[in-house]
Design a protein around this nucleic acid. Structure first.
Lengths: 190, 190, 190, 190
DNA sequence: GATGAATGAGGATTCATTCAT
DNA sequence: AATGAATGAATCCTCATTCAT
C-alpha cells in the first residue's frame, strides 16, 4: 500500500487557509501561499482539494461546523427557553470573539460568490438545535411566531454585529454581549 | 487646452462597475470588463480612477451616499420617534429590495478588505440623521440607552437580514418588513 | 488613436514560432519562449493570438499559403501538362529543401491534433491551381482519371518523402528531385 | 525475493498508451491517464518504462514491429515481383485500415521529435523483406534502379496517403487500394 | 483627454517522476 | 514489485497598469 492521505496535512492546509484568508482576504491569497504556510508542496494542496474553490468551500463548512459545535457544549437542554437562547447567543458571540480570524473568514465567505448554494444549505443545517429550540419556544408561547429561518437570520445578524463591538470594547462600560442578547430577546419574546 | 474630465463618463464607469460587481463579484470583474461595459477605453478608466482599489472605494461611497439619501426623502422630522425610526427602517429595506444589485454590492464590499478604514468612517458619517434621531429618542426615554454606533449596527444588520427575506418572499403571508421593524423596535424601546 | 497593432510584431511572433517549433517541437515550445524570441512581452503574444492553439493554426495557414504561393511563381500556364506538373513538383520540392524548418513544422502540424478541420480545409483550398491542372489533364487524357483530392495527396506525399532525400543527399549521384517526379509522372500518366 | 515484472502489465500499459495516444494525442496524454486505463498504479508505469519518452519509443517500436509482421503473413516468397510488391502493399494498407488507432499513432510518432534516431533506424530495419524484394527486382530489371531507402519511402508515403482514402471511402466507386498500387507500380516498373 | 496596444508579474493548475509504505 | 501520495518545475493565460499615438 502507498502512503495514505494524511489527515494532519489536510488540517494544516485548512488552518493555513483560514489564517491567510483572514489576513489577506480570500481572493488575495494564492494557493501557493497556503501550501507554503502549511509546509506542503504546491501540488500537494491539490491532492487534498482539487480546486481552490473546493478548498474555500471546505473551509466554510469546517468553520460552520466548528461554530455549530461550540454552541452545543454544555447546552442546558432542560432549562427555560430564555436560558437556552442565552446559552446559544453567548456561545456564538464568545466563539466569534475568541476566534477572530475564523469569524472574519466566515463573514467574508458568507458574502462571497465562491460559496456554493449547496455549501450554504449544508451550513445552515448545522444549526438544527436552534431550530428545535425556536419551534419549541413558539409552541410554548415564549416567543412570537416567526418563520424559523428568519428567526435564525435575526439572531445571527445581531450576534455578528455584536461580536465586533465586544472585541473592540473589551474594557468598556457596556457589556455588548448582554446588551445584544437583551435586545434580541426583547425583540422576539411574547 | 486639455479636455476636462467628463462627469458622464465617470458615472458610466461607476454604474458599469456596480452592475458587474453584482453579477460576477468584485474580484472576478477585471477593469477591462468595466471599461467595456461603460463603453470607454481601458485606459480611460484610469484617468478617472487611478487604481481599481480607488474605483471600488468610490463605488462604495456612492452607494452609501445613495442609500443615506433614500432614507431622508420625505423624512417626517417632527413625528414621533417610533414613526421616524419606522420611516428610516422602511426606506432602508425598500432601497435594498428595489436595488438588489446595488445592495448586493454594498454587502460584498462591507465584508471586503478592499474598503479602507477611511471609506468606512465616511460611509458611517452619512447616517447622521439616524444618530440625531437615536440621541433624541434616548434623551426622551423612548428607547433604552445604548452607544449610538451599536444602535446603528443593530438596525443595519437587522435590516440587511430582512431585505433578503422580503426579496425572496414577495407573496408570502409574512410581511418581513413590518415584522423586522417590530422586532427591532421591541428590542430597543424603553 | 492608440498604438495600432503592429504587423511587424505579428510577423516576428509567427517567425519565432516557426523557428522554435522546428527546433523543439510544437508541444515543447512554451509561448514564453516564442515571445522572448520575438522580442515581445509574454502578454503581447496574446493580443495577437488569443490562444496558443490559434497561434499554431495561424502558423499552419501561413506556411500553407507561402508554399502554395511558391508553386505559382513563373507558372507556365500555357505549357504542356507534364511541364506544368513538373513545375509544381519542382517548386514544391525546392521550397521544402530551401526552408527546412518551415517544411518540418508543416509536416509536424499536418499530423497534429492541434490543427482544426477548418484550418485543414482552408489549407487544401490554397492549391486550386493544382486541381485545375489535374482536371484539365484528365480531360485531355494526359493522365488517368483519379479523384482530385487523391491525386493531390499522391503528389504531396511523394514530394514530402522526396524532400528529405534531396536535403540529405545534395551531392549524391541520384537526383532525387527528378527521380521522384519521374516516378510520380509514370504513376499517373495515361 | 522480488516479484518479477509482469508481461501482462507491460502489455496493458502499451495498449492503453496506443489507445489514448490515438484519442488525445501523444502530448496530451498524461502518464497518469495511461496507468489508469491500464488499471495499474501511476508509479507502476515507471517500473516498466523509466520515462515517458521510453514508453513512447517502445510504443513506436511495437507498432512498427506489428506492421512489419502483418506484411509477411502468407508472403508469397516465390511469386512474381509484382505479386510480391502487391502483397506487401495490400497488407500494409489493410493493416492501416484495420487498425486506425495504431496507424494514427504511428503517423503521429513518425512526425514527432520524441522518437529517437535509433528507434527510427530499428523501425526501418523491420522491413528487410521489402529490401530483399526491391534488390531482387532491380537485379531482374522488373523495376528501375533506385536507392533502396528511397523506394521504401516512396511506397510507405503512398500507402500512408492511400490508407486515409480507403478508410473514408469504403463504399465509393474508387478502390483506392488497387488504384494506389497501380500508381506505385507504374511509377517504379521498368 | 482618449485610446487601446504593450507590459510582465502573478496565479491556478498539471504532470512526470520520486519515494514512503 | 506495487501503490498512490508528494513534489515542484513548468505552463498558459489574466489583468492592473503604463505609455505611445
Amino acid at each position: 500500500m502507498a502512503r495514505p492521505l494524511s489527515e494532519q496535512k489536510r488540517e494544516a492546509i485548512l488552518e493555513a487557509a483560514v489564517l491567510l484568508f483572514a489576513r489577506r482576504g480570500v481572493w488575495s491569497t494564492p494557493t501557493s501561499a497556503i501550501s507554503a504556510a502549511a509546509r506542503v508542496a504546491e501540488g500537494t494542496l491539490f491532492t487534498y482539494f482539487p480546486t481552490k474553490e473546493m478548498l474555500v468551500n471546505t473551509v466554510y463548512a469546517a468553520l460552520k461546523h466548528e461554530l455549530a459545535d461550540a454552541l452545543l457544549s454544555a447546552y442546558p437542554k432542560a432549562a427555560d427557553a430564555r436560558v437556552r437562547f442565552r446559552h446559544i447567543w453567548d456561545r456564538y458571540v464568545q466563539w466569534g470573539v475568541a476566534h477572530p480570524e475564523k469569524f472574519g473568514v466566515l463573514v467574508q465567505l458568507q458574502a462571497s460568490e465562491l460559496i456554493s448554494a449547496e455549501s450554504r444549505t449544508l451550513g445552515a443545517a448545522e444549526f438544527k438545535e436552534f431550530d428545535r429550540l425556536a419551534k419549541d419556544s413558539i409552541r410554548k408561547k415564549r416567543i412570537r411566531n416567526h418563520p424559523l429561518p428568519y428567526l435564525a437570520a435575526v439572531m445571527t445578524s445581531l450576534a455578528d454585529a455584536t461580536i465586533g463591538f465586544v472585541a473592540k470594547n473589551r474594557n468598556s462600560r457596556t457589556d455588548y454581549g448582554s446588551t445584544g442578547f437583551d435586545i434580541f430577546w426583547a425583540g422576539i419574546e411574547q
